[in-house]
Computed example of a mutant assay.
Amino acid sequence: MAYSTIAVANTILELAEKKSIEISPMKMQKLIYYAQAWYYFLNDEPLIDEHFSRWHYGPVIPSLYHKLKYYGANNITSKIGDLEFIDNDAVFVEPVIKDNLIGQYLDKILEVYGSFSAQQLSNMTHQQGTAWALKGPDGSVITLEEMKLETE
């Protein structure tokens, strides 16, 4: 089951706060990128329900970029809200993942990648052999299969 990008991001924010890890928008993009790549490699199904695009600073989920661009290069200070429709009413929610196994998985991603800066993570996604580096025009979709090749 693929989760919403916002729910994954909010779960990462909760876990990061407990570990005193600061997360900027660019760092969040890269953490979710690695979470998606490894999850797909291990489970042969996606973690999130959106795709990454090739942008200048590496893989980006465009919708998440637009939700977080307010922060610029500063750290994210609160969970990300979204509108959901419940019984024909629009309700503002801050979704998180309740599945303990996914929480443990994301905690492991933070353990491995959380100490890197946003720029270090961006540099890592630019290395030869990465899905981003396979090139394609700016804005082109990075496929799950390309991401999987990177983890093998």
Rank of each mutant, 00 (worst) to 15 (best):
L101K: 14
E150K: 01
K135G: 12
I142F: 12
A131T: 04
Y71S: 05
A37C: 09
M28D: 01
Y33L: 03
K108A: 07
L68D: 03
F85K: 13
E111T: 11
M147W: 07
P46A: 13
W38I: 10
V91S: 00
T143D: 06
Y57E: 10
Y34N: 02
V93P: 08
Y113C: 03
L31M: 08
L64V: 08
D138I: 15
T143P: 04
L42C: 11
G129W: 00
K67P: 10
L149A: 02
V112L: 07
T11E: 03
Q119R: 14
M1S: 12
S122E: 04
D44C: 10
Y33C: 04
T130P: 11
W38C: 09
K30H: 04
P95M: 03
E45T: 11
L13E: 01
E17V: 04
I21F: 12
Y70K: 15
V96G: 00
G139I: 08
L15E: 05
L42D: 01
S20A: 15
D44A: 02
I142T: 09
N43V: 05
D89M: 09
Y113D: 00
K27L: 01
G129K: 03
A90F: 08
A7L: 03
L31N: 04
Y71A: 08
S140E: 14
Y39L: 07
D44W: 05
Y65K: 15
H126A: 06
Q127H: 08
D138A: 14
K135Q: 08
G81W: 09
V141F: 12
